[in-house]
Each structure stands twice: as C-alpha cells, then as structure tokens.
C-alpha cells in the first residue's frame, strides 16, 4: 500500500499541489490522469522524494522520508518523464545501471532479459544517444525494470513509479508495455503510472486518480472516474464515454463530441 496524504507542494513560490491525497495498492496498476500542468509529475516527484512537500507519504507502514536511499532503491524504481544522458553509454551499460542498487549482483543476462521484455532484444551494443525517442523510452524502462525485477521482494511488494511510460511509443509497443505493467501488478507488484491516453487507462488501470488544478478531482475504479461529467469538467471540453460495441463493458472509449456553441 502506498498512501500520500494531504500533499502540498509549492514551486517557485506558487502552490502547485494544494492538498492532494492519493492511494495505490500493490497488485494494481494505478493511473494518474489529468490535464497538462495539473500536477501529475509534481505529485509523482513528491512521492519519490525528489521535491520537498508538506504532508506524508507512506510505503507500507514506513514514512518514505525516513527510509534510507539505498533501501528505498531496492523497493521502488522511477521512470522520469524525460531523460537525457551525458556521455556515450551503450544501451547495455545504461540498463545495467539499474542493477546498481541490488545487494547481491543479479545474473549477467538480466539486462538482456529486460531489453527483450521491452522489445529491444539485440540493441545491447547500440549507443543510447543514437536511439529514437521511443527506443530511448523503452531502454529507460528496461533499466527501471532491472532495478525491481521481482515484483515481490523480502521487504514486501516492489513498486514502479512511471511518468508517462508509453507517451512516445507506437500503438503496438504501447500495448506491449501496458501488458508488461499489468503482468507486474498481477504478480504482486505495485504500478503507479502517469497517463495521458485515457483509452489505455480505461483498458489497463485497476484504479485511476484524476488531478485538476493541483487537487484530486476523483479517485477510484476507472468506471467511477472516467465518466462524462468528470472528464468534461477536468479537461474543460465536452467529452463522451462510450462502451465499445465488440467488447461490451470491459473497456471504455472516450469520444470527443463537438464543442457546444
């Protein structure tokens, strides 16, 4: 269980998060959605300890502020929204950085397994800086996966914190990666992902938190959060949610109607 309570964050003097509470369960994929600038990245960064915040973030029983960095690194891995890397590292060298935190060295082939898992088998010898945007994003995801490879460790469930993990991927790789995350959760791990694609969110998330203007607007099952009213209010345009005809009730497709007036 990860729970953030009454999180307040100010950036450059302006309040960005104004008392957000957020909960995620191990075994679930929990999506954070909301318009640009609503505070999704800020919430994620507060929960991963990158930003000073008011309020409390608990991982299991412990306050994350009190867990030493190396111990935290064994329990959760973080994929940032954008990553630039200094120096010409190969893909293999980048992925292996994820295994730095492990107490005992993982098997040599772990990095290649992770790369294969994100569809980058055979990319080991390529230079990271020479990959395409989507390939870089998947290489980073492979690095993050090697850090918390087994979804459940001796300390309990492990967690993935991902800021827009599929935003620059093509549709096939989006589905691959979402399957991978669903599988990680199904095996007992916790997955928290900032998402922009509401279709994928509806298909894969077990729980959704909707942020708007630095506050939690709604939180709960996708069917509760992804409704016409909530979406229209959050995004400021008229949105309709439809059930797809060929797969009734299993997922929803938001459909943008013509803007009234």
């Amino acid at each position: 269980m990860l729970s953030a309570t009454d999180i307040e964050v100010s950036l450059a003097g302006t309040p960005v998060l104004k008392g957000v509470s957020f909960h995620a369960q191990a075994g679930h994929v929990t999506a954070i959605v909301g318009p640009n600038g609503s505070g999704k990245t800020t919430l994620l960064r507060a929960m991963t300890g990158d930003l000073p915040y008011r309020g409390t973030v608990r991982l299991g029983e412990a306050d994350i502020a009190a867990i030493p960095g190396w111990q935290l690194a064994a329990q959760r891995a973080v994929l940032p929204q954008a990553s630039r890397i200094a120096f010409p590292f190969t893909v293999l060298e980048i992925v292996r950085l994820g295994m730095m935190a492990s107490a005992e060295p993982p098997p040599e082939r772990r990095a290649s397994e992770a790369l294969a898992r994100v569809g980058l088998a055979g990319f080991e010898g390529r230079f990271y800086q020479e990959l395409s945007g989507g390939e870089q994003q998947r290489a980073q995801l492979a690095r993050v996966l090697t850090q918390v490879w087994d979804p459940v460790g001796p300390e309990g469930p492990r967690w993935l914190f991902l800021d827009e993990p599929v935003s620059s991927l093509d549709i096939a790789h989006q589905l691959d990666v979402m399957d991978l995350l669903g599988d990680y959760a199904a095996r007992g791990g916790g997955v928290i992902a900032v998402m922009h694609d509401l279709n994928l969110t509806a298909m894969y998330a077990d729980a959704v938190a909707m942020l708007a203007g630095g506050r939690t607007m709604a939180q709960g099952a996708p069917s509760v959060v992804l409704t016409d009213t909530t979406l229209s209010a959050a995004y400021g345009c008229d949105l309709r949610v439809n059930a797809a005809p060929d797969a009734p009730a299993t997922y929803l497709l938001p459909h943008m109607a013509r803007r009234a007036g």
């Binding site: 991963t48 960095g69 935290l72 973080v78 940032p80 990553s83 890397i85 200094a86 950085l97 935190a101």
Partner: peptide
C-alpha cells in the same frame, strides 16, 4: 566511480538508484 556512472542519468534518477 559508480556514483558518477549513475549521475550520468541525472541527479534525480541517480538518487532513485540509491546513490547519496
């Protein structure tokens, strides 16, 4: 040496790897 390798990812990602 190892910390500098991690730092190549950026300061926040290095911290997430457990680097002080």
């Amino acid at each position: 040496a190892r910390s500098l390798n991690g730092l190549a990812l950026g300061e926040a990602p290095a911290a997430h790897l457990g680097i002080p």
